[in-house]
Design a binder for these strands. Sequence first.
DNA 1: CCCATATCGTAACGCCGTTACGATATGATG
DNA 2: CATCATATCGTAACGGCGTTACGATATGGG
Lengths: 196, 196
Amino acid sequence: MPRAKQRTPQLHDHVLSVAVDLLASEGVAGFTARRVARESHTSTPAVYELFGDKAGLVREVFFEGFRLLRYRLDTLGNSGDPRADLIRLVELYRSFVIENSVLAQVMFSRPFSDFDPALSDLAASSSVRVFVVERVRRCTTAGLLHGDETDIAHALVALIQGLADAENAQRLGSTRKSIDRRWSLAVNALLDGLSR
Amino acid sequence: MPRAKQRTPQLHDHVLSVAVDLLASEGVAGFTARRVARESHTSTPAVYELFGDKAGLVREVFFEGFRLLRYRLDTLGNSGDPRADLIRLVELYRSFVIENSVLAQVMFSRPFSDFDPALSDLAASSSVRVFVVERVRRCTTAGLLHGDETDIAHALVALIQGLADAENAQRLGSTRKSIDRRWSLAVNALLDGLSR
DNA sequence: CCCATATCGTAACGCCGTTACGATATGATG
DNA sequence: CATCATATCGTAACGGCGTTACGATATGGG
């Protein structure tokens, strides 16, 4: 028998964890398959056997991002005020995108011209939206919002995404105060407009 | 005296025009300095003398994008119904982003890990927002919207951007009908929420 | 002890961004 | 008219990337 295999699922997980860290620390430009391999103390062909190609590596980081966001959302409680809970959902979503800005780029933009999420990959993002839909439904059943929950969730998520992108690109304002004010204005206006 | 210069401002403009076309036709992955040079019937060092580096080339495409968007917006008339005009502004903005999706990526995402728009570059995007602010002001002075015009413009642009990104990524829905419905719901809800 | 073979990493290929540098063209000079 | 100085040009090089062919290697079975 030949030598024991080193390119195991364990190594896969280790490399993926290193990849997520490297992406956060070095940004999109520093994220190369060779670099990930070196940082993981393995060889480049090992990474290619484990992930197929660079797009495959990015895809798994993409999935990991949605998993992390979902974990964060799951910590949200239920205060009995569905609209206040929705506001806190927005704040959590915002803080995730701001704190993990490069990861969020991979999730919501396509900074690597390789990996273009196919429709099947988009299931990851819909798993997060399912969560939002559920919190929206609590508002509609309480009579605080009116309309289709999925449509409302799409609108809310799009607004959050647009605001977060603008904030990340320093397009939303120059002071923390003005940025906060615009977040609050936009989200409250959207919810107000949906409440009648 | 040495030979006549070929790397003139005229060549600069020609290369830029080729670059914009190449970006649209080949996407981010196919957009390389070498390729732009070849397509422009010139040499790679010529492109580098004219634009400094690849980031400089992308930066000029970025500016050109905002110029084109601004031209489109300038075609908007004044119907006497400021809110309806704002809706048409949204539709024009949307169609621009959808029709020029790769160009819009360069304007609003950072698909090239080189070029990171500095604060001075963001003046380009603010020139467009100034236009939006003006149309919002017509609503506020008519009593149709209430609040600071700049804040409202930021909220509206962020929503448009988020919806357009979602639509481009096929995240906003699977049918034209549902996508249109969500655009309409979101924009009208935001304006409704700002109208009191 | 030797061998078959699965597994490994070195090194190659073509492409990229970038630039050094030799080739070249052209007006000025003797 | 021949020579020269020099600004301008494009070829070709360098290192790094994604990707992979292939020779080296380790290890259980005969």
